Simulated assay, not measured.
Amino acid sequence: MTTLTPAADAPRTVTEPRGRFRDLLAAEWIKLWSLRSMPWVLGLSALVIIGANLKSATYTYDHFAVGDTASMYVQTALNDSFNMIAADILMIAAGSIGAIVIVSEYATGMIRTTLAAVPDRRAALLAKACVLTAVMLGYGTLVAGTSFGLTQAILSGRHIGLSITHPGALRFVAAAALFAPVCALIGMGLGVLIRHTAATVVATLLVLFLLPASFNDTYRWSAAVSHAMPFTAWRRLAQVDMTDVLVSPYPATVAGAWLTFAAWPLISAAIATIVVHRRDL
């Protein structure tokens, strides 16, 4: 009989458990709040936005004509809850935050550590986008909801305050709340492309501010480009009184505005995912 000699023990490889997506979300949540400027930017910008809206509502309250009917103040009451100044500040804050969240990792070299721990670059970026969307949606909802409640409470003293169930009010507040994550994801997408803090913030502001101002409704093609801008889409969603909309030869539609709101962040995230996957660090 032959005796079998046991083979030498081969080195055993220890398989590391694959990171779950919720672990990536937790990591991105920690990294986002580790930025020292994050609470300050969110808190101060929220206070400034709410303050600007309260000032607008106070002005309407002080200059209300007794003989006017409440129906004449529907659009004014909505505008007081989230005016143009508030929209501009929100665009600056949200767009800058979206840019800084990703560019800060490139600036500090943290992106190398992140991708070394998570080789799946697309999953890492998707987790970052999800966390950024959740934070900015909460921020936008808090700012828009608080502004609406406080401003309408002021205007109710003149019997022109609106409830959230008033036709068009819920759409107005929802558009203001969603405007924050839309701008933030645009900033993040540009940050992946540019990878420089100052240049990314400037590019984000140019996209959000300059492009909408460069087109008007005079020609059909120009109106189509203008209506495809996030800021123009927000203005259409915030317009309940159709008087000014019908004056335009090529008015925007509510459905088209919602489509614009959905397309910009999705396209930005898709481009950022492709760039991160194919481009070297």
Rank of each mutant, 00 (worst) to 15 (best):
P119R: 00
R122P: 00
A70R: 15
L259A: 10
T197Q: 10
V201H: 06
L44H: 10
A117I: 08
W258L: 10
I160F: 11
V245F: 01
I267K: 04
S37E: 05
G43R: 07
R22G: 11
L281R: 07
Q75F: 06
L266D: 02
G51K: 07
A129Q: 13
W258Q: 04
A57R: 04
S226I: 03
I102Q: 02
M84H: 05
N216L: 09
L54H: 07
R112I: 08
G109M: 15
V173N: 09
L281W: 12
R220Q: 14
T15K: 03
A176L: 10
A153W: 15
R235L: 15
I85M: 04
F148W: 07
S56L: 07
A52Q: 09
F261P: 09
L210G: 01
A57S: 10
L115V: 07
M136W: 11
S222T: 14
S104N: 14
A134L: 11
C183P: 00
V202W: 00
P119V: 01
F148L: 13
T165H: 07
T243M: 13
T108Q: 02
L190M: 06
L281G: 02
D80M: 12
S104F: 09
V143Y: 09
W264S: 02
E16T: 15
A65Y: 12
E105K: 09
L185C: 08
L35D: 04
A233Q: 05
G256F: 13
W234I: 00
L246I: 01
L205F: 14
C183M: 11
